[in-house]
Simulated scan of single mutants.
Amino acid sequence: MDLNERDIDDWPGHGLTDAELDAAYNVRALAGEERFGHLMARYRAMSDAAVEGLPGHPGIVYDETGGERLDVWGPGRDGEARPVFVFLHGGYWRALSRADSAFMARTLHRNGVATVVPDYTLAPAATLEEIVRQVRAAVAWVHRHGRAHGLDPGRVVVGGSSAGGHLTAMTMLDGWQAEFGLPGDAVRAAMPFSGLFDLRPLTRVYVNEWLGLDVRRAAALSPELLPAGRSLPAVVAVAEHDGPGFLQQSRRFARHWGRAAELMVVPDRDHFDVVLDLADERSAVSRALLALVHSL
């Protein structure tokens, strides 16, 4: 990253007060505690229903260093290798799990696509740098071991919501693949939802209580500030009623990614329910994801 100190400190919204920044990024407060709790319960209930009776390989350790596990749902059988959607959960890097995050698995299975849902070590037990390493290791597992589990490592789409949108973008970048012995096109397409692509504002909001970032580290972990490189196809999705910070960041990241990116502002959805539309194959986001998969 070639940014001087002035560039690093001069981020969009740096002149806002802390209270204004909190309003832009505190989507839990925007939703309200009752609605937030209801939606978190829906994540788990919909995920449980989606995987009940579904063929799969749950609980596989994908990273010996971190000891974290992933679930494979709806893989191919009898030698079939299905395209893969790797979904990275949100929760501001400190909450949720793979058990809350498989709500799309049955819908994708019906459409010939497998779902891989990894856990990662939550902050503050892990630094954000380590969390990024772990999700990249999950992609590496698909490449090394996918065929033995009914997955096609040549057709991998990564997606995720909120913090998972940030982690998705960190797998879209060039340069990290060599460390894992992967080809440069290990990720063939991507679909971040309501992501965070410039982390510098978070150094001044409550999220930094568990991230512990300074502005320089935040900049180094910000996909919007890093070279787009190989422009793989991406749908950058965000909810119409999302937090202002998330809407602005999604628009900027789509511009940063260039012609390969499509910005999708999903009407009548908020930060937490937009990704649940992946469970409905008639929804715009499901159609967009399946179009990405079938274009590979």
Rank of each mutant, 00 (worst) to 15 (best):
T121C: 07
P83R: 15
E80Q: 14
A126M: 01
P75G: 10
D119E: 14
N111F: 07
A102T: 15
G76V: 06
Y92F: 15
V86G: 05
A102I: 06
M104I: 06
T127Y: 04
E130N: 08
Y92L: 10
Y120F: 14
V86N: 05
G175S: 05
V113T: 13
L128K: 01
L88T: 12
D174M: 09
L122Y: 03
P124Y: 11
G165T: 08
S101Q: 06
E80F: 13
V156G: 12
G90L: 09
H109G: 00
V117T: 14
Y92S: 14
G79K: 11
W93T: 01
F103E: 06
P58R: 07
P153M: 15
G146T: 11
D71E: 13
G67T: 07
P75V: 11
S162V: 04
M172Q: 08
L108A: 10
V86Y: 02
P118M: 11
G79Q: 13
L108T: 10
A99D: 14
V61T: 15
S162E: 08
G74S: 10
V142H: 07
H143E: 08
S97L: 04
R98Y: 09
D100A: 02
L96K: 02
R136C: 06
S101D: 07
W141C: 04
V156I: 15
H89W: 03
F103D: 08
P118V: 10
L96C: 09
G150W: 14
E68P: 00
V117Q: 03
A102E: 10
I131R: 00
E130G: 06
A125N: 10
L122G: 01
E129L: 03
H149I: 06
A126P: 00
A169L: 11
E80K: 10
A81L: 15
A138K: 00
L167H: 03
A148R: 13
V142W: 08
L173G: 03
A114N: 04
L70N: 05
G59W: 13
L173P: 00
S101M: 08
M172H: 02
S161V: 13
A148L: 14
V135R: 00
S162A: 09
G76P: 04
I131K: 01
H57I: 04
M172T: 10
A99E: 15
E68D: 12
D71R: 04
E68N: 13
P124N: 07
G66R: 02
W93S: 00
G165K: 05
H57K: 10
L96Y: 07
T168L: 05
V61I: 12
Y92M: 11
